[in-house]
């Protein structure tokens, strides 16, 4: 599988990289996880939030954050829409609480068993139609190469 070919979805689902989320995609294209904060009080903001709910300022600052978090909730999607889903098996999607304070939905970077709620994960990227989107990796040493499943084990 090449970097340009996603294991999970059809490239027609590649997200539009403009608009409010443009800084996220620009960072992701360079391998950085970039998320919005209130420039005044540093509160982590939701991705499309324009005014801080904490202090009321409308100054949003995107900056790089640590690519790590824990699983808030997770599902394994069995329904695979023909033409949209390439994976031939049910696939997990996790909603991750990042250490930066944000919550971010993501699929796995590669096929894997679902991480349990509360499990630490790291964040890297999938490439969908040439667009980098955040993807989780089950917590393994960051220096470790991807290992094929289901034999994966921490070392």
């Amino acid at each position: 599988m090449t970097a340009a070919e996603d294991w999970l979805l059809d490239p027609s689902l590649a997200p539009s990289t403009g608009g409010r989320l443009a800084p996220l995609y620009a960072g992701a294209a360079e391998g950085r996880l970039t998320l919005p904060f209130c420039a005044a009080c540093d509160l982590p903001l939701e991705l499309e939030q324009q005014v801080c709910d904490g202090c009321g300022r409308d100054d949003v600052a995107w900056r790089d954050v640590a690519a790590e978090g824990t699983v808030h909730t997770v599902t394994v999607v069995h329904r695979r829409e023909t033409g949209l889903v390439r994976a031939e098996d049910p696939y997990p999607v996790a909603d991750v609480e990042l250490t930066s304070g944000h919550r971010l939905l993501m699929a796995g970077r590669r096929p894997s068993a679902p991480p349990a709620i509360g499990t630490p994960v790291t964040v890297s990227f999938r490439f969908l139609g040439g667009v980098a989107v955040p993807a989780y990796d089950a917590a393994v040493p960051a220096s470790g190469p991807p290992t094929p499943l289901p034999q994966e084990s921490p070392r």
Binding site: L13, P15, L47, E48, V93, L105
Partner: peptide, 19 residues
């Protein structure tokens, strides 16, 4: 669609309302 938060969710495999 493919834009905004929903576009990112769909690009992460959340298709339809069930997931």
């Amino acid at each position: 669609g493919t834009s905004g938060v929903r576009g990112l969710e769909r690009a992460s495999g959340l298709l339809g309302s069930v997931p």
